[in-house]
């Protein structure tokens, strides 16, 4: 699974520019589903058709896109001024490397003369340097989007990579699709777009699919770092089952069923109560007449920086839990 995660996290795909990562995922899932479609917004949807009359229609979502930068102005010296999107942490920017769609690398700089050097960098103090010597020489165009660039690294049983939010969810969906030998349900694996700019892809996909139950697979924060977020979730504690985040209350029936399936399989889980941020499930829950929805989250440190960290055991347990959830009856 590590090789898969490497291919996914080292791919390019800021929100709205998901073509490359979508092609990578399409290649990974070739031949695994009954059919594959791309909807009008660009969501990649792989469907395993219903095998039993008692089966339900399940929507799973993991988002393809990553947080990033978009060029808003190029100055006379050839530096690109940018807007940040998707909740990029400005503290993680200075000195970071970014990559554009054509593979071109840039480094993020910050103006040296600032009013208060102790303050968090403001977006208008940051710029991207791609090695241009003047405006005419700069290969960037307005609207070009970039994501962070870092190769994946292994640190003991943990992985460090950019865009684990949410390529780790994408990896879990792909592995689940591979390991799902039989299911009574119709399962739509949705690799969604534009999650980081307001869970926009999944809402449209949920409207189109009209599923009975929805699950997002995404990352959550972990409270096990020095003076970390005030939450119980820790790396290595197993899949985090969502109770509440900033935008949704997970359907308690979905949450309880996930917890029950984990207990049956002897998998440890944790409960996620997240103060900031949300997932595709928030949009799925209120599509059309509503969809019972929940989420499985991978405990993750340093979210929205170039060096996000997860524990492999948690990731594998998410695959095991999701596979079991799909193989068993789903009655809410």
């Amino acid at each position: 699974m590590q090789a898969l995660i490497r291919r996914l996290t080292e791919s390019y795909g800021p929100s709205g520019s998901e073509d490359q990562i979508r092609d990578v995922v399409r290649g990974e899932i070739r031949g695994l589903a009954d059919y594959v479609t791309i909807d009008p917004l660009g969501n990649l949807i792989a469907v395993v058709k219903k095998k039993a009359k008692s089966g339900k229609k399940i929507m799973l979502a993991a988002h393809l896109d990553e947080v990033g930068f978009v060029v808003s102005h190029i100055d006379a010296q050839g530096f690109a001024r940018v807007q940040l999107f998707g909740g990029v942490n400005p503290l993680a920017c200075v000195g970071s490397r970014v990559r554009f769609a054509d593979g071109r690398l840039g480094v993020i700089g910050i103006e040296a003369r600032r009013d208060d050097l102790t303050k968090v960098p403001a977006v208008n103090e940051l710029y991207i340097d791609v090695g241009a010597t003047n405006a005419a020489d700069c290969p960037l165009r307005l609207g070009d989007a970039a994501g962070f660039w870092r190769p994946m690294e292994l640190a003991g049983r943990r992985l460090i990579a950019k865009s684990l939010d949410d390529r780790i969810g994408v990896a879990i969906l792909i592995e689940t699709l591979r390991s799902l030998k039989q299911t009574p349900h119709e399962v739509a694996f949705v690799f969604s777009v534009q999650e980081e700019v307001g869970t926009r892809g999944a809402g449209a996909a949920a409207f189109g699919l009209e599923a009975d139950v929805g699950l997002a697979v995404d990352v959550t924060r972990a409270g096990d770092t020095p003076n970390g977020p005030r939450m119980e979730v820790r790396l290595g504690g197993g899949p985090a089952i969502k109770v509440r985040d900033a935008r949704m209350i997970a359907d308690p029936r979905v949450r309880e069923l996930l917890e029950q399936r984990a207990r049956e399989a002897g998998l440890a889980t944790q409960r996620e109560v997240l103060e900031g941020g949300s997932t595709d499930a928030a949009a799925m829950q209120i599509a059309r007449g509503g969809m019972p929805a929940g989420a499985i989250a991978v405990p993750t440190r340093y979210i929205h920086t170039p060096s996000e960290m997860v524990e492999l055991g948690d990731v594998q347990a998410c695959v095991a839990l999701l596979t079991r959830f799909l193989q068993r009856p789903i009655e809410l």
Binding site: R244, R247, M248, I249, A287
Partner: peptide, 16 residues
């Protein structure tokens, strides 16, 4: 349901 947490229940109810 869920009015106190982002007015989430009423829109779907009205849709249905």
């Amino acid at each position: 349901v869920q009015e106190e947490f982002g007015l989430r229940g009423a829109g779907p109810a009205a849709f249905a």
